[in-house]
Simulated scan of single mutants.
Amino acid sequence: MEHISAELLSAVVTVVGGLGVSGLTRAWILHRTRLQLARERSARAAARAAGLTQLAGRPGSVRIDERDEDGHRVVELHGPGRAAAGEAA
């Protein structure tokens, strides 16, 4: 009987140890995924800002309708020397 309980204890320790290692591995993968998503969002925001800066420098006006995971935005850019309808004073 003592031999069976030692084998059972060994199996339980192995299973619990395996679950602990798999939990740590899963947490590490989730952490790395969150970091990668943050880097991609940052790069997208920088590219968007650079593109909007170029569009704002052009004459005329540009209307951008933008949807992403943050929501929905409508951006209107007016070129140099033009004011929006509500900005004229």
Rank of each mutant, 00 (worst) to 15 (best):
1 M>P: 09
1 M>K: 05
3 H>F: 10
4 I>Y: 15
5 S>Y: 08
5 S>K: 08
5 S>C: 05
8 L>D: 14
8 L>Q: 13
10 S>Y: 02
11 A>K: 07
12 V>G: 11
13 V>A: 03
14 T>R: 12
18 G>E: 00
19 L>T: 14
20 G>P: 00
21 V>D: 02
24 L>R: 15
24 L>V: 13
27 A>F: 09
28 W>F: 01
29 I>A: 04
31 H>L: 00
31 H>Q: 09
36 Q>H: 08
42 S>N: 06
42 S>V: 02
43 A>Q: 10
43 A>M: 12
46 A>E: 11
49 A>V: 04
49 A>T: 01
50 A>D: 09
51 G>A: 14
52 L>S: 04
53 T>I: 15
54 Q>H: 07
54 Q>R: 10
58 R>K: 09
59 P>K: 08
61 S>R: 08
64 I>A: 11
64 I>C: 11
64 I>S: 06
64 I>K: 14
65 D>E: 14
66 E>V: 00
69 E>M: 14
70 D>Q: 09
70 D>A: 11
71 G>R: 05
72 H>L: 06
73 R>A: 13
74 V>S: 00
77 L>K: 12
79 G>D: 05
83 A>T: 08
84 A>P: 02
84 A>T: 02
84 A>W: 06
85 A>K: 07
89 A>S: 13
89 A>E: 12
89 A>Q: 09
89 A>Y: 10
